Structures are given as C-alpha cells and as structure tokens.
Simulated assay, not measured.
Amino acid sequence: MNKRRKIFILYASFGEGHRQAASALSQSFERTGGADTVLIDLLAEAHPFLNGVSRFVYAKSYNVMPQLYGWVYETTRDMDAGSPFANWLHSFGSVALRKLIERDNPDAIVHTFPMLVLPTLFRKIGRTIPMFNVITDFDLHRRWLHPAVDKYYVATDDMSKQLRSLGVRPDRIAATGIPIRPAFRPDGPRTGVAAKYGLDERRPIVMVMAPPNVPSSETSKMCLMLRDRCNAQVAVICGRDKTLRDSLASALAFRAGIAVLGFVERIDELMAASRCLITKPGGLTLSEAIAARLPLLLYRPVPGQELGNAKYLSGKGAAVICRDSYDVVRAAGRLLEDDSASYAIRAALEKLRKPDASDRIALDIATQLHIMERASSKAASFPRTTLLPTSR
C-alpha cells in the first residue's frame, strides 16, 4: 500500500483570502485521497506578537495610510529573490518551521502566502522538500518568486505568460485559477434563495460585501440608494465582523428590501441569485464571483494588490471600478436596466473562469510528487558504471 503523504499548507491571516485558499486546498487533498494536510499560519505560530502588530497595521492601512502601503507594494514589486530585503522578508518563521518539519516530516510544502522560509532551511535540515506556490491574486508581485519553487499555480493565462517572461519554465507553471471551496456550486437552483434571507423572489438582488475601508454610515447610505434609485433589494454581508454587522443592522433596521447578514456559508447560492456584486477586490471573492459569472463593481480599491486586481479585471471588461457611492449606484442601475451591459460583463467573466481550481491543484501536486519520487527512486537504484571509450 502506498504511504499517505503529509503536506504543510502555509498561509497568513492578513484578510480572509489566504486562509480560505489554504482551507480549499486542504479539502481537495482530503477529498481526492492524496494526502493529509496541516494548515499553518506561520507568522502567528512563530511570532504571535509581531503577527498581531502586523495584522493591526495591515487593517489600518485601509483607512489611515493606504498610499503608504501602496508605495511599499509598488517599490518592492520587482525585487529579486536573492536581494537582502527579500532574504529578510523570508527569514521570519524559520525556527518554527524547522521544528515543525523535524516533528512531522512533510512530503511537500504549499504556500498560499509568500513566506518562503523553506529555501533557507534546506542546508540546516539536510534535504530539500518539494515546494509549491499558489498565487492568490490577479496581480503578480515578485515576492512570490524563488528559484527553489517547484511549480506555480496562477489565476490567469496572462500571469502564466508574465512568469515565462521572467524566466520561469513553462512546465513549472499552471494557470489553474485561484482555489475556492470545492463545495462552491454557483450553477445550483435559485428558487427559494431570496426567501431564505428574507428577500422577495420577484425583485433583483444586489450583493454588497461591506468594505472594511468604508465607514458603516457610508455603506448604509449606499444600500439605501441602491434600493431606492435602482429598485433593487440589497443583501449586505459583513462576514465575521460582528461590530460592523451590529452597526449596519442598527442603521438599517426596519428598512424593507435590505438584509444585513454576517458570515454566509452558502455564498454560492446568494451569488447565483444576485444580479451584481459590490465588493473590495480581494482575490478569493473575485474568484468566487468569476465562477458564478456575477458582474463585479469594485468599490474604492486600495493601492497594492487590490488595486492591481481591480485594474486587471477592469481591463478585461469583467468589472467596473467605482470611486464613490454615486458611481456604484450608476453602474448598478445600468446593469439592472441594460441587459446588453450585463451580458458583456458576464461574457468577459466566462473567459476568465477556471473551474475546479482547488481539485486541479491538489491532483497536479500529487502527480508532481509521484514523478519526483519515481525519479529519486531510479537515481538511488541506478548502478554506478565506468564509461569506457568505444572503438569505431
């Protein structure tokens, strides 16, 4: 019987996306029977205080200093993997990861966040471990790149071309899409979904992912404008942010046609029943909307990877960037009133769809590991011979 592999999946808690991608991959590995997985928030594991400070600064960067965050992101976009700054960034967590490796002896490490500690450990642990990067944005930052990476899994064919232009071999790249939950089924039945959330089946639904960089008073005003000016119902989703949910629920209490929701487990159902989505451009949410062919209105993207994501999708005709509530209402009204505008965005989204990304990545990693194991086994068993010159 073949030994069941163990795979570490490294993520970070900066936003939900990296963790969700890690969770999706874990489900796929378990479901396909290829491996047992261990999910590791490496910075939290290694440096809990630093992780807390970093998360606080990251959250505040949305409101207090988005331009500074964007400047740092753009300044380091083209950094070399061997540069002092890159080596410093990739040094965090090395002691903790070494202990975990020595304890669990993983067969591979997968990153959904670019903390590439592993190459610095190879000499210390006395062996190499296969290493795979799952890039969770539509915008490429060189922090993800390292010569020791065995394969990259990327969101789009354009990013695949970009990696090739940087010297990465084609066989080390797969344009699979960003992994979303294997249970995500955007083509399911729509009947009964509106009623489940206290809405009317007969009226169009606009989804709003309440943005963290926008005051709740502004979000509630936008929801009322969407309802009153677009003749739409609004499902506003606050995720796990209880403070935001309570604030919006209070501001929008007794307002017919508006549902204030927390974390929605079956977000695929609500996406399938909606006419458009207003959201910040995080990689995972965008990937779910692409899977659902749900027209995207990207609200005030902050500088950095989110602005890069927004510009990419806007350039493909798959999204509209909105700078304020009035932009949102105009764009949503056009989509609800003009079928051709909605159809054009849906057609652009269809071109970007890459179904079953999570399962495809898990199966491909299993294949890569099998190939590596066979090659290693052959190399170990191949007899050493002395080549003698041959006569003609």
Rank of each mutant, 00 (worst) to 15 (best):
E306L: 12
L199G: 08
L226C: 12
Q162K: 10
D104E: 11
L296G: 07
S342G: 15
R346Y: 11
S91H: 14
L261V: 04
R190F: 10
I365A: 10
A86L: 00
L297G: 08
T219P: 13
K124S: 11
R169Y: 04
A21F: 08
L261W: 06
P189F: 13
A319G: 05
F263R: 14
K124E: 03
T156H: 01
R353L: 07
L284D: 02
S217A: 15
A379P: 12
V328D: 03
R127C: 15
G167K: 05
S358Y: 05
S325C: 08
P114S: 03
R374Y: 00
L252S: 13
I371L: 11
M209I: 14
S54C: 11
C276N: 00
L349W: 01
T112H: 10
T120K: 15
Y312W: 05
A251N: 11
P189V: 07
D171C: 08
K161A: 01
V208M: 15
Q305M: 13
L286G: 05
I173C: 02
N133A: 06
T128S: 14
A319V: 11
L369V: 06
T279N: 03
G93R: 09
R266K: 03
N87H: 11
D139M: 00
E30Y: 13
P383C: 06
A253Y: 08
T367L: 14
S61E: 06
G283T: 11
R98P: 12
L50G: 04
K242L: 15
Y312H: 09
R384K: 13
E350W: 12
P295M: 07
C238H: 10
E45D: 04
R31H: 11
S391Y: 01
L166Y: 07
L387C: 12
K221I: 00
L313G: 10
K280C: 10
A232W: 01
H111A: 03
A272N: 02
S287T: 14
Q305W: 00
A379Q: 03
Y326Q: 12
L248C: 06
R19V: 02
K60C: 13
V57N: 06
S23Y: 11
A380I: 11
H146M: 01
